[in-house]
Design a protein around this nucleic acid. Structure first.
Lengths: 207, 207
DNA sequence: CTATGTGAATTTATTCACAGCA
DNA sequence: TGCTGTGAATAAATTCACATAG
C-alpha cells in the first residue's frame, strides 16, 4: 500500500489506542488482537485495522499486534517519541485539574511552564513548577516550548492566544468557551465543555 | 425540502451557534447573516446555511437570520427549551471547574445534584447544592434527573456509570480517561483531555 | 484455522454553484 | 442587489468482504 496522508479521524483515535496499549503492556500483555483492542476502546475491529493500515503493517496474521512495537510506532507517528514540553495558562480549578492529570506524562507530555494573572498565585509552586506572571509568556520562545493549554476565562482567551503565538507557540489546546483567531500555521484544538453537555439532551428520549 | 435526520456533525455545531446567537442578542443585535455568524464561530457560511437547512427555513433572503427566532429553534431542536437538570459525580478540581461554568445555565442546563465519595466533602455546599454521598446516586431516579457528568478518577468511572444507568440516567458526559460500557440506549459523550492534547504535536511542524 | 490488511462499496459530511426570494 | 436555501458534486470516513499470511 502507498502511504498517503493519515485521516484526521484516525489521528484523533491514535492516542486512545496508545493509552490502551500502554495499559495492556503494563498488565504484562505482549500482544493484542484488533478485536480485543476494539472491545477495550469501544470501536470496531475493522476500524482499528484500517487505521493502522494507513501507516504500515504491524500485525502478525493469526496472532495480532505486538504491543510494544505498535505503541512505539504510534508514538512516532504522533511525535510523542521525544518528550514535549507544554505551557499552561490559567491556574483556576480547570488548570489545576489538568496539572494533576497523570496521563500526560505517559504520552510524553510535560507541563513545564505555568502562568496566571493573579498576583497572589504568582510565585506559588504547583508540583515542581512555579507559577509565573502572564507577562512572562514571551519567554516561551527561548525556552523552546511550542505547545500550550489555555484555561483562562473567555474574555482573556484571545489575548492570551495572541501572546502565545507571538512567543512561537504552534499548537494550542483551548478550553475557553470561544473561538480564537490565530494564524493558519497554528493548530488549535478546542474543548468546549458546555457545548458538549448541551448536545446530550438531543440524544436522550423525552418521556 | 423534506426534513430527515439531522447529521451528528450538525448537532455538534448547533450549541456553538446557539451560544454565538445568545451573545449577539445580548449585544443588542437582532439579526445576523450566515457570513457574520460564520466569522464568529470559525466555520464557513455555506456550512451554516446547510446546517440550518436540515430543520427549516429561518432566514430572510437579502437580510439574514432573526437572532431570537433562530435561537429559539435551535433550543427546541436540542431540547434545551425546557431547563434540564443534571447531576455531577466527583467534586475534585475538574468537578469544581464544571460547577463554576457560567455557560451551562445559558444552555438551560442546571446541575442540581452533586456527589462525591469523600466523607469530608459530603454535606458541604457548592453554590446552593449540597454534596451528597455517591451511595445516594439511586435517588436520581425519583428526582427525575437523567443527565449526568462523570468527573471521577478512571478506576471509579465504570462503577459510577453503572450506578447512574441503574438510576435511570440516559445521557452521560464522561471526563474519565477510559471507555465506559453502558446499554445502547444510553448516550455517552467522552471528553478526554489527555488524548486531545496528545494529538497536538502531530500537527505541529518539527523544527 | 485465525486474525491481519486492503481494495471496493457504502455511508456520511463538506463544498460548490446557482436558483429564488426579499 | 444581497443573502438564503438546496440540489448536485466532491471529499472524507466507515463498513464490508475476502484474499492473504502465519
Amino acid at each position: 500500500m502507498r502511504y498517503h496522508r493519515i485521516p484526521d479521524e484516525t489521528v484523533r483515535r491514535l492516542p486512545i489506542y496508545l493509552r490502551a496499549l500502554l495499559f495492556a503492556a503494563d498488565q504484562g500483555q505482549e500482544s493484542i488482537s484488533s478485536r480485543d483492542l476494539a472491545d477495550f476502546v469501544g470501536v470496531n475491529p475493522w476500524q482499528i485495522r484500517k487505521d493502522f493500515s494507513y501507516f504500515g503493517e504491524f500485525g502478525t496474521r493469526g496472532v495480532g499486534y505486538d504491543i510494544y512495537e505498535l505503541a512505539q510506532q504510534i508514538k512516532k507517528i504522533l511525535k510523542l517519541d521525544v518528550t514535549k514540553q507544554a505551557a499552561l495558562v490559567g491556574v483556576g480549578n480547570l488548570g489545576s485539574a489538568i496539572l494533576a492529570y497523570p496521563d500526560l506524562r505517559m504520552f510524553g507530555l510535560d507541563i513545564t511552564a505555568v502562568f496566571d494573572v493573579n498576583p497572589r498565585k504568582i510565585g506559588r509552586k504547583v508540583g515542581d513548577v512555579e507559577i509565573e506572571s502572564v507577562s512572562r509568556l514571551r519567554t516561551l520562545e527561548r525556552r523552546k516550548i511550542n505547545l500550550a493549554i489555555i484555561a483562562v476565562p473567555r474574555n482573556a482567551a484571545q489575548k492570551v492566544a495572541e501572546a502565545l503565538v507571538r512567543a512561537g507557540v504552534m499548537g494550542i489546546l483551548n478550553f475557553s468557551a470561544c473561538y480564537i483567531t490565530v494564524p493558519r500555521r497554528v493548530k488549535v484544538i478546542t474543548i468546549d465543555i458546555a457545548t458538549d453537555l448541551a448536545r446530550l439532551p438531543y440524544y436522550v428520549p423525552t418521556r
